[in-house]
């Protein structure tokens, strides 16, 4: 079953002489339970695509369906609620709230769903899964970059999202930490059937994923 369907998605930044055609018409399906990597050179439109899929930005043209729902029709409030419940994000770096402990960061999205009790336990479970159970009462600046990324992953999963988005989650990590994070993604995908869409520009990351979507100059590159 397709969890994501996008049709002729376009994104233009700016207008007139300074307009940048970041996406020039992307059509793509992503299956439930798939682990997809979006690859391509810098500037090829990977982040732009991920932002549009994650409802963080609006396309210039095209359609996005998530579980057959036309998500571009959602209002601002509805979109926020949708992101909170159905989507998870792992950003490149520093995306934790500095004034909250690791545990508080992880269950913050759950607090917004007014389901504190069970989700606090779930947050602790997730921290165990990502191997941070000993760090949960630390503040973000007291743990390493790799640990922060793992905490972000735990946070992105706390509301049991349908899709997990990650934009170069290992770009700022050393090799060993990067491997831990990618293994974690693979495990989540295999054990929990978590759908994951990850942007990366490391060719070696291919081995972790089910499928690679190559982008070039705002278009999907067919390498077949």
């Amino acid at each position: 079953m397709n969890i994501i369907r996008i049709n002729n998605l376009q994104k233009v930044y700016g207008q007139g002489l300074t307009a940048t055609y970041a996406l020039k018409g992307i059509t793509l399906d992503i299956q439930q339970g798939e682990f997809v990597a979006i690859m391509g050179r810098s500037g090829s439109g990977k982040s732009t695509l991920l932002h549009l899929l994650g409802l963080l930005d609006l396309p210039t043209a095209g359609e996005i369906f998530i579980e057959d729902r036309n998500v571009l029709k959602l209002s601002g409030e509805e979109s926020a609620a949708f992101r909170l419940k159905e989507l998870g994000y792992v950003f490149q770096e520093y995306s934790l709230i500095a004034e909250l402990t690791i545990l508080e960061n992880v269950y913050l999205p759950a607090l917004c769903l007014h389901k504190d009790k069970q989700y606090r336990n779930r947050a602790i479970e997730l921290l165990e899964i990502v191997g941070l159970q000993d760090r949960m009462n630390h503040y973000p600046n007291e743990v390493s970059g790799g640990e922060q990324q793992r905490a972000s992953i735990a946070r992105s999963l706390v509301n049991q999202p349908k899709i997990l988005f990650a934009d170069e989650p290992t770009a700022n990590l050393d090799g060993a930490s990067a491997e831990v994070v990618l293994e974690l993604f693979r495990k989540l995908n295999q054990d929990l059937k978590q759908t994951i869409v990850m942007v990366t520009h490391e060719p070696e990351d291919k081995k972790y994923v089910d499928r690679v979507v190559w982008l070039k100059d705002g278009l999907i590159e067919n390498l077949a």
Binding site: A80, A81, L87, Y89, P109
Partner: peptide, 16 residues
């Protein structure tokens, strides 16, 4: 600013 952006990205209600 960045922190506010992240809170919004993960779907925290504006009113919060």
């Amino acid at each position: 600013k960045r922190q506010i952006g992240i809170l919004r990205a993960i779907g925290i209600n504006r009113s919060v």
